[in-house]
Nucleic acid binder design. Structure first.
Length: 449
RNA sequence: GUGGAUGUAGCUCAGCUGGUUAGAGCGCCGGAUUGUGGUUCCGGAGGUCGUCGGUUCGAGCCCGAUCUUCCACCCCA
């Protein structure tokens, strides 16, 4: 019984045109990463579930794709747990592996496992798919590629500067229109939490503030009120939101917080460097409301936004990512490009170049055995010259062969039948112009010097 | 995970208050043109109406479940 095939929700096939465009994005990113001294690694699609759990918050845990154990996976589970039908409890017993959720945590695991082979500071890049059991929407997939660059084992703020310049270089070359790099520092947010006396509720605070541009001041205050913030705290936060503080005002407000001032100082240093170097097309904007969900960030945080699209890049500094795996005191900072969302923007704005050079440039029409023997040396001579060329594999109607060439975007169609063989020539048709000429094999080959 | 919309030919969509054989444009295939594509003309194929079940004399249309895609929330690249 034939069944209609399908693919899982939120996943996609990539056809030849799409692959050309995707590879173009990857190649630009790869080139720039290398230019800044990053080296590539890959890690397995699956990690031990225990490596991933608890690193992304409760919400993140829910979105991890778990892999069912092979074999009789229920055998080892004790009856009591089975009876309870508690899925969260049960997964521990029936899933020991999971698909990677991002590239940063696997990288931390990699660093710990290979610490003796790595010379620090270690700059690695990684371009691989990640999987999230999210509900798909436009620009939101369950399988998508991240392109990460991280520096681990260096506190220097010069790394932040490099990463900002990488955003600028890549997104300029990809012709992403009108994007802004938002930058903040987690220490500033911690400082504010100290000043507002809400240090224990910093996550609630940052999550709410992050939505400011979406829900406005009232929305943020409403959410905070629901989370149990006191009147006094709400009043202070309200007055803070009113003034849309720049760095100078922030310094005042944070004067009692050592951490907060450190954050401002770091941010100023990074921004001063960037101003000195200059940016090609990026706009760099300090944004106190930028929080980002991932709770392991401790210093700078970045996010690249394009109007009317979901964010295309993210990143930040984490002081102790490897700590949970037993290696303390390694600070890292990294960024991530969301290739699929970049793709969507480039498609919507016609930013892709032509990929005609990837196409077959010359196609030989197949007229039969003898004619094939006559054409083959020329075909392979072309390939030796690096020209993409092919011979139509079957001796079918010319119309069909021409149509094939036309649809594939072939530039030259070569015809060699009885007459050409007799005169030792080739008839070459330029498909773009519709013109054709009969010339010698040598003359033809010279066209490609 | 919560709430809402959606699904008819390969694609974009028509399809009356439920009533014979479900339509169009584009695409595809064939012919006009057995050595010439893209234009033109003529002809043709292609549909379990997402899937399963229910109501009805009768369901593409009504009801339920399920899946897909999309939107909002959550979260994020």
């Amino acid at each position: 019984m034939a069944q209609k095939p399908s693919i899982p929700k939120g996943t996609r096939d990539f056809s030849p045109v799409e692959m050309k465009r995707r590879n173009y994005i990857f190649s630009v990113i790869t080139k720039v990463f290398k230019r800044y001294g990053f080296e590539q690694i890959e890690t397995p699609a699956m990690e031990n579930l225990s490596t991933l759990m608890g690193k992304y918050g409760d919400e993140g845990d829910r979105l991890i794709f778990k892999i069912l154990n092979s074999g009789d996976y229920l055998k080892k589970v004790n009856d009591k747990i089975l009876q309870e039908k508690n899925s969260n409890q049960l997964t521990k017993y029936i899933c020991e592996k999971a698909l990677r959720y991002d590239l940063t945590v696997p990288f931390a695991r990699y660093v710990v496992m290979h610490q003796n082979d790595i010379t620090f500071p270690f700059k690695r890049f990684q371009i691989q798919p990640v999987w999230r059991a999210d509900r798909p929407q436009k620009g939101r997939y369950r399988e998508f590629y991240q392109c990460d660059a991280d520096i681990i084992g260096s506190d220097s703020l010069l790394n932040e500067v490099d990463l900002i310049k990488i955003f600028d270089d890549v997104l300029t070359e990809l012709k992403i229109p009108d994007y802004t790099i938002h930058i903040n520092n987690r220490k500033i947010l911690s400082g504010l939490a100290e000043v507002f006396d809400i240090a224990d509720k910093i996550i609630d605070f940052t999550v709410a503030v992050d939505k400011l541009d979406k829900v406005g001041n009232e929305g943020v205050l409403k959410e905070l009120a629901q989370k149990g913030f006191t009147e006094k705290q709400l009043d202070e936060i309200a007055s803070f939101l009113q003034e849309e503080p720049g760095l100078a005002q922030l310094k005042n407000r944070l004067s009692t917080s050592e951490t907060g001032l450190k954050g401002v100082e770091e941010l100023e240093e990074v921004m001063n460097y960037v101003t000195q170097i200059g940016l090609k097309s990026a706009k760099l904007k300090f944004d106190v409301t930028l929080a980002r969900g991932l709770n392991y960030y401790t210093g700078a945080i970045f996010e690249v936004k394009v109007k009317d699209f979901p964010s295309i890049c993210g990143g930040g500094r984490y002081d102790d990512l490897t700590g949970v795996f037993g290696v303390k005191g390694l600070s890292g900072v990294g960024i991530s490009f969301g290739a699929d969302r970049i793709y969507d923007i480039m498609l919507a704005t016609n930013a892709f170049p032509d990929f005609t050079q990837d196409q077959t440039e010359v196609m030989f029409v197949n007229f039969g055995k003898q004619e094939t023997a006559y054409c083959l040396p020329v075909l392979f001579a072309l390939r030796e010259k690096g020209i993409n060329a092919e011979l139509y594999p079957d001796n079918v109607k010319m119309k069909k062969q021409m149509k094939f060439a036309n649809e594939k975007g072939v530039k030259y169609v070569v015809m060699a039948g009885e007459n050409e063989m007799k005169d030792d020539t080739l008839t070459v048709k330029n498909m773009h112009e519709g013109s054709q000429d009969t010339i010698s094999k040598n003359e033809f080959l010279k066209m490609f010097n």
